[in-house]
Write a protein that binds this DNA or RNA. Structure first.
Lengths: 275, 275
DNA sequence: CTCAATATTCCGCATGTTGGAATTTTTTGA
DNA sequence: TCAAAAAATTCCAACATGCGGAATATTGAG
């Protein structure tokens, strides 16, 4: 019944939560991981290995702040609207998201494809935004806020491929074990794919790992030339002919360059892989 | 230099933050309020009336949790991606947002208008989702996550109008003073508008408070018949003829009813106005 | 290069936090 | 419908953790 929430906590072997603030955030995470149906206090306490009174007090504080909603008849807790409001302003790290938004909309309209904006976050890529096309799409990233390991999917792969050498190695070393369970991706395959992406400057795959789906992605560079994001589309495989691919890549590249030009100097994606 | 952040803290005369968790959240709020350009520690300390060491420690915890990004050269703090990820799962309170998403998209496509989904939150309405139409739009709610006082704008007004009598009174009493500065809305006007909306079951305004913009909104009821949300469009005034209005209201109503039918029993928007 | 402003670390004090136990409320089962 | 079990909430004393003044390090300005 437990979800892939643990995978989200990537780096250091966490030496247990320390501050009560962190405990509170852990509660938020646990509630989020549990999904929209809400969690009961006892379950939270068990999952997080805290005592019920502690969880209760933290929950009370979170409810008071509107970060959590609490069924009035004292049953379930779920994420609150204030959290939503708060984070609506968060995605726009350096306004990347705001910058890209109109571009995504235009692209999805003109290409008639579903367009994704991914950014790096540690060892993962996160879907910052997404504009729906007319075709039903399956993707690794899922909806806005979704995350995938760096290397899985075209957009994510593009970011990985354009990372500085040492960071790239570190990510690969960290992610390969995580990919074991998925059973279709080995080191050779990954490194080959990376090399190819780096060489041609974009990632594409006809009939990829998701049956019937294809993807095309280009990197988005910041002013310092770091690949901070990827612009990508997902589409039914049969829609993506070779000629179309060429055109799509071209258009994506142009838009990515446009974004780069507007990007502020500070880097939107951060890494802190060692911390 | 300070933003309308204080307005977000609606209800009780806050007797100062108590728990450190709440202090931490206050910091998140302060950073959010400051916008994407980032805040310095000292400014946070001043704004929140905390000492620099306290702010620093809390920030450190928040950074460790990925809720905040910290320029490596030790300058500015901004909201982090993990917060974004966390809250991406929050908006779907009771899956209202997820339910409505495809409907918004369809509406914006068929009507060629910008469509909004608003929910109540205390004395405000929050923009849960928004699907762009082809026309440039100005709205009170702004983008996803934006908030307006209940009563301002057609969607927000619709929710207010359909509230239970006592809650409606309470909201009006609370919001009227807040509207003073805006200088175009008095009590008579507001009550008249509410009565009209309640009577016709939808809100509309040719040439509203935003020059050149018009809006149409219908309430979305939950299973208990409470108006928990509003579905609305914003459009250039000259686009909204009387005949078109009729049709639009009709379509919006139909879709709102569709959402209602699918709504879970628990109420997605919560009020706790007295707490 | 110096000085002022800001960020960060230190550390003793005390305040907020903690969890066992008690109490109230809700759910389960008969 | 009621009784028993489980969960939620409150209490409180022990104490760990967060607090802030002061010291230090770092950054930025002139």
């Amino acid at each position: 019944m437990s979800d892939p929430a643990d995978l989200q906590r990537a780096p250091t072997g966490d030496a247990g939560n320390k501050t009560s603030l962190q405990r509170g955030i852990a509660i938020l995470r646990a509630i989020a991981a549990h999904g929209g149906s809400g969690v009961r206090l006892t379950d939270l306490a068990r999952d997080l290995e805290m005592t019920p009174p502690t969880v209760h007090r933290l929950l009370k504080a979170l409810v008071a702040e509107g970060m959590i909603d609490h069924d009035t008849q004292g049953k379930r807790y779920r994420l609150g609207l204030d959290l939503f409001v708060l984070a609506a302003q968060a995605g726009s790290c350096g306004t990347l998201r705001d910058l890209a938004r109109p571009i995504l909309l235009r692209l999805s309209a003109t290409l008639r494809e579903t367009v994704f904006l991914l950014v790096r976050n540690g060892f993962d890529a996160i879907c910052l935004d997404r504009a729906e096309g007319p075709f039903p799409i399956r993707s690794f990233t899922g909806d806005i806020g979704g995350r995938v390991m760096l290397g899985i999917g075209q957009g994510s792969l593009t970011i990985l491929a354009h990372l500085p050498e040492d960071e790239q190695q570190e990510v690969i070393r960290f992610n390969l074990p995580r990919m074991q369970g998925m059973g279709f991706l080995d080191e050779v395959y990954l490194r080959t794919a990376i090399a190819k992406v780096k060489a041609q400057g974009y990632a594409s795959q006809h009939s990829g790992l998701l049956p019937g789906m294809s993807g095309v992605a280009v990197p988005v560079f910041d002013r310092q030339g770091r690949a901070v994001a990827a612009l990508s589309i997902g589409t039914p495989t049969d829609r993506l002919t070779d000629e179309r691919l060429t055109v799509v890549v071209d258009i994506l590249r142009r838009e990515a360059a446009g974004i780069s030009r507007q990007l502020n100097p500070f880097d939107p994606a951060l890494s802190r892989p060692g911390v």
